[in-house]
Design a protein around this nucleic acid. Structure first.
Lengths: 204, 204
DNA sequence: CCCTTAATGGGATTCTCGTTCCGTTAAGAT
DNA sequence: ATCTTAACGGAACGAGAATCCCATTAAGGG
């Protein structure tokens, strides 16, 4: 039988399946905004998505899985960093991008939910890591370009510098839970840049 | 009756009450280490503490309350910052102190649990804020001393600088979930210091 | 257009968690 | 030592969430 495997039915990513997935993920986000991760219940997600409860359990099995899938979805929508022409502009753009994300009601609630879920679910933790690995790698390119332009010392660690820009913002969001605004974002970018120019981010 | 109010019984913080509280909080920490906040269940906490389930519900009512109380307890045990004689030493000591806390299995699990709880419970969020407000205020003093010694520019924002030292560590713990070690801690302290010396933390 | 079967949905069932009731234990005062 | 009553513990109860069963719908191949 050259027709091996799948001789039975076929995989069908057809319209319905995709529609259900989209509806459920959107409903998940809505529920997260209103109730947070701890208040996320399969039952209610299904009802809100206009989908059978059984379907949600079958495809995601747990609320943490739901949140992990949502984060994976967001990771694929990440937009590439702009090139503003200067490191200062690029780092500031990065800080504002993070600010926009955590300030947005839906995205902010989602991030906090994934962070909460990741503290006790490996799947969610993996999705979180994957999201930031990609994001940091994307933005690190602007640092390399800046080094080439001579704006930053040779050997400056791009990923580390990008992390240094966003760390204060997430720290406030999640740990001290203080409000975050443009001023804070600008300070974060500017302080990281000052340290980078002084060679604090060169490897070795 | 000049003997108004409490004419009935008396408050009794006696040995039993205190013992129960200690046993329950310890059991809570144990459970957090093994299952995380999402897996924290009143029932199991009570069993582990060798205490009636009713008692736990009566005194804490919810798992978030349990975690919040635990954090409040930890806040009271915080030790004052040492004076190493130089800002460099003091900031490094701060970074190592944070490192020690988040690396310790029990403390680390507790912090992550409180952070998770705070995303959807106001009581836990308040406990978290209170903890860091105190901690940051305590350590900010070393910055003021450094300014007096002339090691840092006049007007350097102490609390901000302290936050800048710990932000990268918590960012890794909670957001990117990368391992944190002495090297990372030292870098965090050193980078914040470099920026501070350059005047990046002066207010106004 | 018809057939096969992957995928869904409603509802019954089971199970776990949170709550309440009431008898028992022991802290603190006399 | 004794009494009062705050605080605790065991067990039964009820609500709500997770799981299972089976009839129904529709994607994709012929």
């Amino acid at each position: 039988m050259e027709q091996e495997s799948r001789l039975a039915g076929t995989v069908r990513p057809g319209g319905r399946t995709a529609k259900v997935r989209a509806a459920v993920l959107q409903a998940t986000q809505d529920e997260l905004v209103e109730r947070g991760f701890h208040g996320l219940i399969m039952d209610q997600v299904a009802a809100r998505a206009g989908v059978g409860k059984t379907t949600v359990y079958r495809r995601w099995s747990t609320t943490a899985g739901l949140v992990a899938d949502l984060m994976t979805e967001l990771a694929e929508q990440s937009s590439p960093p702009p090139d503003t022409g200067t490191v200062d502009g690029d780092l500031r753009a990065n800080a504002l991008s993070v600010l926009g994300a955590i300030t947005d009601p839906r995205l902010g609630a989602t991030f906090q939910a994934v962070i909460a879920a990741a503290t006790c679910d490996e799947e969610a933790a993996a999705a979180l890591r994957a999201f930031y690995a990609r994001r940091v790698a994307d933005w690190a390119k602007v640092v390399d370009v800046a080094v080439d332009r001579g704006e930053l010392p040779e050997g400056t660690d791009g990923p580390e510098l990008i992390r240094a820009v966003s760390a204060p913002l997430y720290y406030r969001l999640v740990v001290t839970r203080e409000p975050v605004d443009e001023t804070i974002a600008a300070q974060a970018a500017s302080r990281a840049l000052i340290a980078a120019r002084a060679g604090a981010f060169t490897t070795g």
